[in-house]
Design a binder for these strands. Sequence first.
RNA 1: GGCGCGUUGGUCAAUCGGUUAAGACGCCUCCCUUUCACGGAGGAAUGACGGGUUCGACUCCCGUACGUGCUACCA
Length: 507
Amino acid sequence: MANEVRVRFAPSPTGGLHLGGVRTVLYNYLFARQHGGKFILRVEDTDQNRFVAGAEQYIVDCLKWCGLEPDESPEKGGPFAPYRQSERKHLYYQYAQQLVDKGHAYYAFDTQDELEDMRSRLKNDDNHNPQYDYSTRMHMKNSLALSREETVALLNKNTPYVIRIKMPQNETVKFTDMIRGEISFDTTITDDKVLLKADGMPTYHLAVVVDDYLMQITHAFRGEEWLPSASVHLLLWEYLGWKDSMPQWAHLPLILKPDGHGKLSKRDGDRLGFPVFAMNWKDPKTGETIAGFRELGFLPEAFVNLLAVLGWNDGSEQEIYSMEELIQHFSISRVHKGGAKFDYEKAKWFNHQYIQQKNNEELAHLARPYIETYAEIHEPQYLVDVVGMIKDRCTLLSDFWAQGHFFFIAPASTDIAAIKEKWNDAKKQFFASWIPKLNSLPDWTHASIEASFNEEVQLQNIKKGEVMLPLRIMLVGGKYGPGVFEIAAMIGREETVQRISDTVAKL
RNA sequence: GGCGCGUUGGUCAAUCGGUUAAGACGCCUCCCUUUCACGGAGGAAUGACGGGUUCGACUCCCGUACGUGCUACCA
């Protein structure tokens, strides 16, 4: 137990779960499984203003869909419960107080207005963001600048306050990141971060340290955006006297917008036409739904695979990995330092690969909902056969309808124009005389249909190519799909004849 | 502005001082296919820039540029 690997994913339940979040989960999960350790889901819901109903359940559902289920979580429980920081509120104050007692933190009574005032007063071209730090703290309303009596008086009057860390001056904080190697910061440049908010809730900075310690986290993986504040966390580990139990850090590279600047955000999805969230997310406030990979027709295995290799590779040429292979091959030190632009085309390629790998029974099961939205499926085996015939040309599960609708219902629209262009009496005659032959064909197989077609071509002295495309368009609606005689065999005699005569009538 | 982190084709990327600088996606050409795909064979396309160190740098060091992140009582 003492040396057990324990990692955690600590999302803030404020909305949909982003690609990058899922990748962070994945890397945590792989690392835990690889070391026979535990993967913990801890919900960081310390900001009550940003509470979003359903967001936590959504995250849990996403992890389930991806097959990345935690060993300990708010819903599952575990030896370090509760796993929701809002339910651990009572834990944090004592540590903040401990820091104040040791002189590493202090009470600050400044109101929002006073804070804003200081910032706007000090803001200039050389200082875009004035900080609450060594240079300003003695001019503010806090227990460092005020006398002991004044402080006590304010406290007794129940004046709202926060507790801030007192960042030391001119110290260098160093640590070794598992991905980036040695990283150092000058403590002077970071501000006196709020540790405990006026509502009694901890900020991320305090909560992450306290909970990582209490939950015996051994390795902490998080996004690169946390790097600048790592010095605060390191100092906290030290000041709280827990330095020896501090986890090893790894700051993951960001996933960037495919077209240029900045990290990928949910807005980019709508803008560029691809999903950013794992599953559909419906914002309970606006009612707006943001598309997810799942609903768009991605397989969870493909989604996990493509995320795994976005920023990591094992040095080989392998690109397709099962979860077991990922667990075996993954290595945090081979994760890239630089951010990666997300490439939706490549993402689709992965999904196509996984669709091809699946057997037809499984695929039929997965494609079923996408088809049932539009048409009734009478015979399960029929679906299985159809899926087998069209899976080559399906990249997303949703493609099964686009590529196979004509197996279930007559084409909603037929590309008449493409036939009309070269339509003539000879072709008209061909179909007119072929229909009765079809009606009297002794057996209805793609081979017999094709043989009959060839015979008729001979008889009418017409070029086969002249009538193949019209036939396809009549049955399918457009210039696509598997072999036309296979389609005819599948949809049956009656339907085939019906579609041919219906289309001919329109010409 | 300050500070951190990063930088190999359009994109994902291998290389861990000596290679004709892999591979994949996408793109282009051809083959297969009387459709569309799949598949097969080819092709175009890469070390930001400038200094060092070294017999030798994509690889190590330093600058510059560029990108990106942070700079909240948000995570």
